[in-house]
Nucleic acid binder design. Structure first.
Lengths: 198, 198, 198, 198
DNA sequence: GATGAATGAGCATTCATTCAT
DNA sequence: GATGAATGAATGCTCATTCAT
């Protein structure tokens, strides 16, 4: 569908040139239509990019959800490892979207910035909610604040992994994943004790 | 000096709008001169921004060096803690430069991208070189690869801290610093053993 | 058609101000559109002027061809006289194009200069080819080099006529045409002998 | 002297780029000073170029005068031949000035155009005056109108030679000179009769 | 004599957008 | 659905010129 192709082209252009650098002509050319035709699908540039942002965020959310639901029955080591791997895989696989996301985070377009900030909150809430539930089910003895701290470490480590995707080449990232998993294991060890030992 | 003010204004605009979004008029207005006057100091937009990038990177380098030389005699816990704190302090104090840096990392202007990539390498080399030297002096018994791994963890944890600066508010970052230091301590503990115990 | 009107306006502006002095605004205003609209028809200023040059040269060629084919059956005196008159008439009738041509000949825009040089060669080849054929048909007894010399004189005399158009007022030019024809007749007389005597 | 160097640079730039294309910076750079310094010597761009034009025209006049006075005692064939050769030599030797002159002829700067037109008249008057005097001295039997016509032919032939300098390469011009002299000889022959036979 | 710093005016060009078709 | 033609607004940049030093 033309509309979807436009959004994909918008993401690619956003990733490469940023919001101001992405132009309706380049996007149109990439899709094989004339710039004027974009306005049949979207009210204006901002609307197109707002939609593109939504797609990127929804895609990220669905990736994370999928991994989560596939792994939530596993032990915590596995769950966290797979979540971290998932961060890496998603962001390296959809580099365009990741680059676009990085430029968006500081976007001067308030609508877009708002979208992002809201998403970050929603995603965090979801993640914390899910993890709290899953972990407390597996380890009823753990105090809530311990779990909470664990999750915070997970998020922190995830951030390190994420930024690595932006600045390192693919092959350097494997090492980063190993490091991330190892650090997470340390946290688990300290919080829960034995479980992580294989 | 007008030239320096221009560079600062360029950084601020780059941070807020990205390369394409930053305009010579906005920059000129911020400095209190007319757009045409910028061209007395810089050949063109790209030259101005290339200079701005250099300033940002040099500034970062000097921050890190300063901390390093102040702390290199301390024990490793302190050294790493202070380096991590330094990352946080530098990037929160000079948020403009940090935001600009984030936008630059994916800059479509190849000259700028090249500058960044080169800097990242140079900085890494310096950091690794210094740490290798300092740590092996303090702990002659450690095998080189152990030290190397320690440094890698430090860099990874630093990345997490850095990305936090970009997406979190100031007060959330204190927690991040604590986490970073704690994770680093774990790494030290595993590598060196006793020293870190207070 | 807007595109044709643009080319005509470009010629007029080129004639009056030269390449650098002709501006897109002046041209647009002359056509009754806004400067930005020119770019719908032409990639840029150079492309517009390259097209304008082509039009001027093609126009000149077609004028000369037309006269040639109308007069080639006549005797040589008439043929040459009419060709000379045609030079005068074409260049005085389309003064804009002539002035533009004069400015173009030394154009610093290499694309344009190239176009001109190439045309001059092509036109000369055509002229020489045609005249050789026509004259040798009418005067089989003439050696090729005699004909060639005759043609060279014609071109030389044509040049004198041409430069007159640039620097003299219309009424002075009639005398120039008479002179040109008379000189050409002298050449014919010397080459062929009797024919020219009426 | 800097002022003279400026005029020479102005001529060179005028020749290459035309009035609008010649810039104060380029001229300043060529002379090795800064643009602002030009204004110590000339009120403004137009004044500089007006001066440059004067220099070109005066130079042309002096060239022609010199030849004239060297040759006025010779017979008419020699006199005209040398004058024609002089046209060729002057304009090929000082190509810059010739190119500048060609662009100036249609200059939109009225001061410059006026200067040129006035010069053309003055030069013509001088030429006609001298030739009338010289020829009637040598050939008292000739009616004034015959001499006048002879001079007109000379001017016409000179124009052909001049335009050749603009459009042909140096080696093609020798042929043009031979043609010019030959045509002039024909005119002499018709007007005066025997003299030209050597 | 010369220039560093600055500017108003203008230029070619781009871009998001419109609208009749 | 799509586009040809057009434009207002803005952009990076140039240029002749000024003026205090």
């Amino acid at each position: 569908m033309t509309k979807d192709k436009l959004i994909q082209a918008a993401i690619a252009n956003f990733a490469e040139f940023g919001y101001q650098g992405a132009t309706m002509s380049k996007i149109a050319k990439e899709v094989g239509i004339k710039p004027a035709s974009i306005y049949y699908f979207f009210d204006n540039k901002e609307a197109l990019f707002k939609e593109a942002v939504k797609v990127i965020l929804a895609h990220h959310f669905s990736s994370m959800k999928k991994t989560y639901h596939l792994q939530k029955e596993e032990n915590l080591h596995t769950l966290f490892s797979e979540l971290l791997r998932s961060i890496l895989v998603h962001h390296t696989t959809f580099q365009n979207e990741t680059k676009a996301y990085v430029t968006m985070v500081n976007s001067p377009i308030s609508n877009i910035k708002r979208e992002i900030t809201a998403y970050l909150q929603r995603y965090n809430q979801w993640l914390v909610g899910q993890l709290m539930h899953t972990i407390s089910a597996k380890h009823p003895e753990l105090k809530e604040e311990k779990i909470s701290s664990l999750i915070d470490y997970f998020i922190f480590i995830g951030n390190g992994l994420f930024w690595g995707v932006v600045i390192y080449e693919k092959d350097e990232l494997k090492k980063n994943l190993v490091q991330a998993i190892h650090l997470m294991d340390q946290c688990l060890l300290h919080t829960i004790g034995s479980e992580v030992n294989e």
